[in-house]
Write a protein that binds this DNA or RNA. Sequence first.
DNA 1: CTGAAAGCGCTTACAG
DNA 2: CTGAAAGCGCTTACAG
Lengths: 334, 334
Amino acid sequence: MSDDARPRPVTRADVARYAGVSTAVVSYVLNDGPKAVAPLTKERVLDAVRVLGYRPNLAARALSKGQADMLGLLVNDNRNPFFAELCHALDQASADRSRQLLIVNSDRRQAPTSEQIRDLASRQISGLIIASVLTAGEQALIERLGIPSVMIGQFGETDGLSGVGVDFAAGARMGVEHLIGHGYTDIAFIGSAARYDPRERGWQEALGDAHLTPGALVHTTFSYQGGYDAGRRLVERGTLPRAVLAASDQIAVGLLTALREGGVRVPEDVAIVSFDGTASVDFVWPRMTTVVQPLEQMAETAIRAVLDPDSVPRYVEFATQLRVRESCGCTADD
Amino acid sequence: MSDDARPRPVTRADVARYAGVSTAVVSYVLNDGPKAVAPLTKERVLDAVRVLGYRPNLAARALSKGQADMLGLLVNDNRNPFFAELCHALDQASADRSRQLLIVNSDRRQAPTSEQIRDLASRQISGLIIASVLTAGEQALIERLGIPSVMIGQFGETDGLSGVGVDFAAGARMGVEHLIGHGYTDIAFIGSAARYDPRERGWQEALGDAHLTPGALVHTTFSYQGGYDAGRRLVERGTLPRAVLAASDQIAVGLLTALREGGVRVPEDVAIVSFDGTASVDFVWPRMTTVVQPLEQMAETAIRAVLDPDSVPRYVEFATQLRVRESCGCTADD
DNA sequence: CTGAAAGCGCTTACAG
DNA sequence: CTGAAAGCGCTTACAG
């Protein structure tokens, strides 16, 4: 229905008139403050609200309070399965706190991130969650605007902003140690070189502790295509590692495709452990053993960090968990 | 940075004072109307805006205009790859029209869809895009609220609301005809029974036209798990079809996993064509031949339908396109 | 072409 | 415990 004839909406004044009180009292009732209201008056007001089907105009409320009940989320691309799950978890966590999440893809055409940040600010958002990599200038802008904000899923602490993440290095160690437990000694790492990745360090350390020499180190992009390209390179090189730790599920899936295409069997020829624990890798074949990030908890913590900063440490790091499937060489009934 | 000390923001009054004009003139300049402004005055205002770094308070604007520059999107679960791509396309199309998209997952805990619709309305959204199945009551609510709205990606026309979709039946026919072209005669369909699916009809018709008897018809849910379950059933039954049309990419991926797990080769034993054309199925092995929905065009049209209803027919149906890969039996260099 | 002013629907300090 | 009133930052009909 594309009819523009909106019915005149019920306003607070209507409710006040119906209940025989002032609009202030209606506010006191609806907001549970800042003044107390006599029980009977309260009943009358709630009744009026019910009868008239009243809903506060949230734009008016936002103007009046100088703050909307919306939270911004900056994400590079919501289609990436990991970030899709993160968006979903954050949306749920926001809703649990009666906030609407404004998801902004920072890969939008012709929209510099700094513009998007300013736009969110002009919408009076009461907090900002950042799930994409920012420049120093963008971080400074956020601080200048004074928006409570938190980075989620990034590496380690960031000077200006508070953050929620996982112990990437420990997670990677866990993955590599599992591969070592299978008896593999030639274990490669496929990840990104864009920034220093603690997963790479975890891989190295686990191998060092086991007195193994590091296998191939392949740098690529965080995408299916990146994993695929890395896999092709390994296949063409002719010397395949016995096992691989992939820095993300997407890389692992691309790798898997390249290996199969090259006639390489997984896990018989090359075993894989990936990172993230998205649902999608439970439906590839062989099913992927993966280091799981606790997204729900991370999301819940991030929302709290933004709405109630003092209740959360400046940097919160969660532990990961290994979800064992078949890509590592375990069998379904291990 | 979780500091709540927001700097006092620059308001329209500041700009007016700096430029030596009234706030009305500032509005005329910024909104290009409704009154004309002398070129020199305009320059002075724009200068003031630049110097002061002024950004309009969008909550105030929304209150004043009775309409926010935001569009709502109702989607069942943004993690589903197809809907993730749809969200992304709609986000981009909204941004192209200077609107912010408010994505609402209708699978939120304890949040009836009708409440979510009312909530969006109270935020003064100027339009609603619906990518999930609504009850009659929910549709009626939307009409009652008078929000311009459009359904996207659903089956055929819906009485009340306008819509944008694809010709599902023709797409399915195209997929089945491709399989027939490979010489397969035993072609199954895996889809959902929740509502009548035109893809099922397209499958039947294509077979009928080729004088083939329909293969197995398997009803399941639209998910990886649904496809997996359907695949297991086929494998356990022992009589595999020679080819399958899957009603969605997710179903196809789940099916693929179940088949491989059962030692069935794709496409040598069972060929698959799927529906949707999401990016993810280009990175399974074998890569999936799929019927592609033109999401960008659909998204752009849906946004237009909501912002400028008269420029778009009440129901717009796009054609699909076959993306040929290897799961159907074609070889990489076909 | 420009401005003074009312109004959008809330919140909240202030007074009673 | 309740209310009259100012104010949030815009837009826009009205007057000049």
